[in-house]
């Protein structure tokens, strides 16, 4: 089973679970949707209205930025893969 790592600030939406095991996930996108289908309160923080990964969220497959992969979120994953959800951290005085 592939593993999705939930970022700390979003764990309140997964019952404080830090990881999520994905059964039968073919692609990264399918794995993420499997997660948000189970934890629906998490969905708005990860998926936009069009069903795509939100612009404020990055996905990493191991140490690789998923947006830099040829197939991006449609990349197929293996059982040993670890997907991390990385929220954008930014701000400033103005």
């Amino acid at each position: 089973m592939a593993t999705i790592i939930i970022p700390t600030p979003l764990r309140k939406f997964t019952g404080n679970q830090s990881t999520f095991k994905v059964n039968d996930a073919g692609t990264i996108s399918e794995a993420i949707h499997s997660l948000t289908d189970q934890y629906t309160d998490l969905k708005k923080h990860v998926i936009d209205e069009e069903g795509k990964i939100r612009s404020f969220v990055r996905l990493y497959l191991g140490d690789e930025d998923v947006s830099a992969l040829d197939q991006k979120a449609e990349t197929r994953i293996k059982e040993s893969d670890v997907i991390s959800i990385v929220p954008a951290i930014a701000g400033g005085k103005i």
Binding site: R58, Y60, D63, D65, V86, A88, I89, A90, G91, G92, K93, I94
Partner: peptide, 8 residues
């Protein structure tokens, strides 16, 4: 006036 933390 702005900061941004790299995803890595």
């Amino acid at each position: 006036r702005r900061f941004e933390i790299h995803p890595q």
